[in-house]
Amino acid sequence: MTANAVVNPLPRQERTESISDPVATMVRLVRDTWAFVEPHAGRVAEFFYATLFSISPATRELFPVNLQVQRARLLRALVHVVQLVDRPDDLIPFLRQLGRDHRKFGVVASHYEAVGMALLAAVKQYARDAWTDDVERAWAEAYTIMARAMLEAANADDGPAWWTGTVVERQRLTRDLAVVRVQPDHPVPYQAGQYLSVETPQRPRMWRYLTPATAPREDGLLEFHVRAVDRGWVSRSIVATAQPGEVWRMGPPMGRLRVDRKAGRDVLMIAGGTGIAPMRSIIEHLAQWGSNPHVRLFYGGRVRADLYDLEHVQDIATTNPWLTVIPVLETESRIATAERGTLADVVTRHGAWPDHDVLVSGSPPMIRSTVSRMLVAGTALDHITYDPFTVD
C-alpha cells in the first residue's frame, strides 16, 4: 500500500444519500469511530506500523527506510478510502486503478490481509470503549470492499508493473518549481489528464504522483511540472537535484479527468498552480480537432508567478476559439485581464454552471474549498470530476 493521502472534499451529507441502510450504517460507524480516534492519529499510525511489521515482516520492504516523513500517510489514505464506500461508482474504478498501480511493489494477497489486521488493531487500540462488535464488523466490511477491488484488478492486469524512463531535461522556473522532461524506454499508455506514480533514484521506494502536462506524443516524451512543497522529500529533491541521465520508474496511469466530446455539454476547467498540468494535457489533446465543446479554463494562484504556464495555454486559445482562458489572482493584479479572488470565489461568482462538465485540479485545500463552494452554489455533484489527489 502506498503512503499517499487521499483527498475527500465532499460534505458527508452529500455522500450518504440514496444508499441502502446497511451501507449507511457501516459508513456512519466507520466515520464516527475515526472522529473519536483522529486526535490520536500520530500514535495510531505508530501502532499500525508496529503491528503490520510484526504480523508480516516482509511488508517492511514495501516502504522507504525513513518512515518519519510519511508515518501517518498510509493510515490516512486507508481511512479516507474506507470512508468513501458509499460512493461505489466513484470508488471502485479508483480502487481498480490503485490495485493495478500497486503491482509495482510486489503486493500479494497476504499483504492486504496483514494491512487490514493492523488497521483494525490500531483503530481498536485507541477507540477503546467506542470499539464494539458492530464497529469492528463495519471496519472489516469496508476494508474488505477496498482490498477485494484492488486485488482483483491487480490479478487481472497483464501489463507492465512499471515503465522506466530517462530524464532528458530539468528546467528550473523558480526556486520551488521545475519542469522535468522524461523519455520512457517504451511509451506509457496514459490518457490526457491522467497521472502516474513516480520513483526517483534520490528517494527509493518513496513513490509520488505526478501528472504529465502534455497530451500523449508519438515519441512518448513526458513533461512533469513539479513544485517543491514543505516537508516534501520527493518534490524538493526533484526540483533541486534531478539531472539528465538519471532513470525514473513510473507506475500505471490513473485518474478520471477527461472531456467527453460526444456528451453535448460545455466544459469548465478549474486549475490552481501545478494543477494546470492535467488541464493543459486535455486541452492539447482536444486541439487535434477543429470542433470541440466550449472550454472555459479558470487558472488561478496567489501571485503572478503561480500562473507560470499562462502564456502557453493562452497561445493555444488564440488558434482554438472553443477555448477561453481566465486568469485568477488572489493577492495582486499584475495581469490586466485577471479576476481577483480565490478560484472558489471567482468561479461561483459566475453562477452554478448548469449543463457544464466541471474538472477541478490543484492542491488538496483548493479542491476542498472549490468543490464545496460549487455544491453550495448549486452545481450538480455528478457533473464535478476531481481526482482523489495526493500530497507529497
Results as ranks from 00 to 15, higher is better:
Ala3Arg: 13
Gly251Phe: 08
Phe53Tyr: 01
Pro216Asn: 09
Asn66Leu: 07
Val325Tyr: 06
Thr379His: 05
Asp133Tyr: 02
Lys104Asn: 10
Asp86Leu: 00
Gly251Tyr: 10
Arg256Leu: 15
Asp32Gly: 02
Asp382Ile: 04
Gly351Cys: 02
Met250Ser: 08
Glu141Arg: 07
Val69Pro: 10
Val376Gly: 09
Arg249Thr: 07
Tyr195Leu: 05
Ala271Cys: 01
Ala178Lys: 04
Gly106Asp: 04
Asp185Glu: 10
Val82Asn: 02
His40Asn: 13
Lys262Arg: 14
Arg12Ile: 12
Thr51His: 07
Val44Gly: 12
Asp157Ala: 05
Thr385Gln: 14
Gly272Tyr: 08
Met374Glu: 12
Ala72Pro: 09
Val328Tyr: 06
Pro64Asp: 03
Gly193Ser: 06
Glu113Phe: 03
Arg208Cys: 04
Ser54Glu: 15
Ile270Asn: 02
Asp176Thr: 15
Met146Trp: 07
Gln13Asn: 09
Val358Tyr: 06
Met279Lys: 05
Leu310Ile: 04
Thr200Ser: 15
Ser20Trp: 00
Thr33Lys: 01
Pro57Trp: 05
Thr214Gln: 09
Gly245Asn: 04
Pro388Asp: 14
Glu113Ile: 10
Tyr299Glu: 10
Ala58Tyr: 00
Asp260Pro: 03
Asp315Gln: 11
Thr51Cys: 06
Phe94Val: 07
Ala213Ser: 14
Ala35Thr: 09
Ala109Leu: 06
Arg170Met: 02
Asp382Lys: 04
Gln125Met: 14
Arg175Tyr: 15
Gly341Gln: 08
Leu74Pro: 00
Val347Ala: 04
Asp306Asn: 11
Gly99Thr: 01
Arg148Asp: 11
Lys262Asp: 15
Asp260Val: 12
Glu141Pro: 01
Met206Arg: 15
Tyr299Ala: 07
Arg217His: 00
Ile283Lys: 04
Trp289Val: 03
His186Asp: 14
Arg261Leu: 09
Tyr308Leu: 13
Ser361Arg: 12
His225Lys: 09
Val65Ala: 08
Leu375Ser: 06
Thr390Met: 13
Leu95Arg: 05
Ser237Glu: 11
Arg96Ser: 11
Ala5Ile: 12
His102Thr: 09
Gly301Phe: 08
Val267Met: 01
Pro365Leu: 02
Arg137Glu: 11
Arg227Trp: 02
Ala263Leu: 11
Gln97Ala: 13
Asp134Phe: 05
Asp392Val: 07
His40Cys: 07
Thr200His: 07
Thr132Leu: 03
Gly220Arg: 01
Ala242Glu: 05
Thr370Met: 14
Asp309Thr: 11
Val303Cys: 08
Met1Val: 05
Leu329Ile: 03
Glu311Thr: 15
Leu381Arg: 12
Thr319Tyr: 02
Glu38Asn: 13
